[in-house]
Structures are given as C-alpha cells and as structure tokens.
C-alpha cells in the first residue's frame, strides 16, 4: 500500500475549522498556485510562505511541526527532479561519481522540493480542518458538476466499507499462506499475480452486487436519479474577509519576491 488509509481530518473548533469551506477551498487553491509560481531563487519568500502556512496551522491548532512533518510524504517523488542538479549549467559545487553538481542545478532542485513540500502543507491544512462532506458541498457550490459530486459522495460512503472487504480478503490469503523457513512456497510470479487477480475479481463482484442492492434501496426511498441536498448556507462577508487575510499575505510575499529576491 503506497498511501495511508487514515483520514486526516482532525475534529476541532478553531477559527480555521469554522471557516466557510468554500472560502477554504478557494484560498487553498490560490495559495498552491502562488507557491508554485514563486521565483526559484527567492529563498526569503519560501521562509515567509512557510511562516504563513505555519501560522495557519497554529490557528487551526494542528501543530506547526506535525503539519510540516506530514507534508514530507510527497518528497520521495522528487527523485524525478534530481537529475536537474546535474543537467543545469552553472558553477561546479560538488562532484558525485564524476558527475558535476552545479550551483544553479542545486538551486532549481531545492526550489522544486520546497514548493512541493509547501503545497502539500496547504492541501493538508484544508484536509485536516474540513470534514469531507463539507468539502463536497463546497465543491458543488463552486460549480463542480452535481453528478460528479454525488458519485464522489457515494464513493466516500463506501470507501471504508470496501477497504474492510479488501482487508478481509488479504487476511484470508495470509492465513492460507503458511511457509517453512528456507522453503519456497506457493507458485511463481504469474501464480501470485493470478491469486491477487482473483481477489480483485472477487472484490469487484462484491462491489458490483452491493451497488445493485444500494440502487434498489435508493429506489425504495424515492430516488429519481437526482441526489437531493440542503441548500448551502449563504456566504457571509466575515468569511470572505478572513479568507482575504492569507491571500493578502501571499500577495505581499510574491510582490517582495518579484521586486527584490528574483
């Protein structure tokens, strides 16, 4: 499994938790765009951006360091950008196995790492302070197609149910996969893959048949092809003002970066 299956939402009553989810979604997206657009060599800007995100983490009582640590989860991907250190022309700073690491290359690589890490922190702030159901109606009122939102909503409802099904399948496989030490057991790669394939097929049928039962139950309750939801509450001007604060900070950081640190 290459992702943690734990929900990141932390129940709480902070200002960040109570803020209108529509505002939080928009602010998060703008923050991420801002982070990605930061000029690569504007190092003070990165420090300020981290301070901004850290401040928001404290405001949400999420823990400055915990958010920063959790945001490291995307860092392994950065190997994809590691070659920039060697291929960007610049002054030599280091030699690794005869390959020249240039200062400009190192700077570009570090900038990509920092941007990725900061952007994950912004996304984490949203996920940690907003229940997924709130996120869904916020996305719907931000003009995401209603049907897609309904599909994702149903997916979320059954995500953990089907995760448990998958875990039962894997426990059953593990229970039947005894082996002696120093003894090869089971078949080759193709056999192992076919076993996993059978489990996936079994899970598919369970899911498919569950969807038929769910559909019948929905029909029994008057489903006509449209999901009905309460109207979203009106957007209050206080929320808009609050959302404007981090965006103003972002604008100032970007202005400074473009003016002096680029």
């Amino acid at each position: 499994m290459n992702f943690s299956f734990q929900e990141r939402y932390r129940a709480g009553d902070s200002l960040l938790h109570r803020l209108d989810p529509r505002i939080k979604v928009v602010v998060t997206l703008v923050l991420i765009v801002g982070i990605v657009m930061t000029p690569p060599a504007a190092w003070p800007a990165y420090a300020l951006l981290w301070a901004l995100l850290g401040g928001l983490a404290l405001l949400g009582r999420l823990g400055f360091w915990r958010v920063a640590r959790t945001a490291g989860l995307a860092l392994p991907f950065s190997l994809a950008a590691a070659t920039l250190m060697f291929t960007t022309p610049g002054n030599e700073v280091l030699r690794v196995f005869g390959l020249v690491v240039s200062d400009a290359g190192l700077a570009r690589f570090a900038a990509i790492l920092l941007k990725s890490w900061l952007a994950v922190q912004a996304a984490l702030l949203l996920a940690m302070t907003t229940p997924f159901t709130d996120l869904l109606w916020a996305l719907a009122s931000l003009r995401l197609p209603q049907t897609l939102v309904a599909i994702i909503g149903l997916m979320y409802r059954y995500l953990f149910t089907l995760r448990d099904e998958a875990e039962r399948l894997m426990r059953a496989r593990a229970a039947r996969s005894g082996s002696l030490a120093n003894h090869r057991s089971g078949g080759g790669l193709g056999w192992r893959a076919r076993v996993a394939g059978g489990m996936v097929g079994s899970l598919f049928l369970r899911s498919y048949e569950r969807s038929e039962r769910v559909y019948a139950a929905m029909l029994a309750r008057g489903y006509t092809g449209r999901m009905r939801a309460l109207d979203p509450p009106p957007l209050r001007w206080q929320a808009v003002v609050l959302g404007g604060v981090p965006l103003a900070a972002l604008a100032i950081i970007q202005l400074l970066a473009a003016r002096w640190w680029a």
Partner: peptide, 20 residues
C-alpha cells in the same frame, strides 16, 4: 449512474490495496 460509479470508484480504491 450515481450508485454504480460511486461504489466502483470505492472498489478501485480498495483494490489498489491488494498487492502481491
């Protein structure tokens, strides 16, 4: 559409856990 697509999306999510 909605129940089938939603539950199959959850299926793919769970099926990605099954590894060998």
């Amino acid at each position: 559409q909605i129940p089938l697509m939603g539950i199959l999306a959850a299926f793919v999510f769970a099926a990605q856990m099954i590894n060998f």
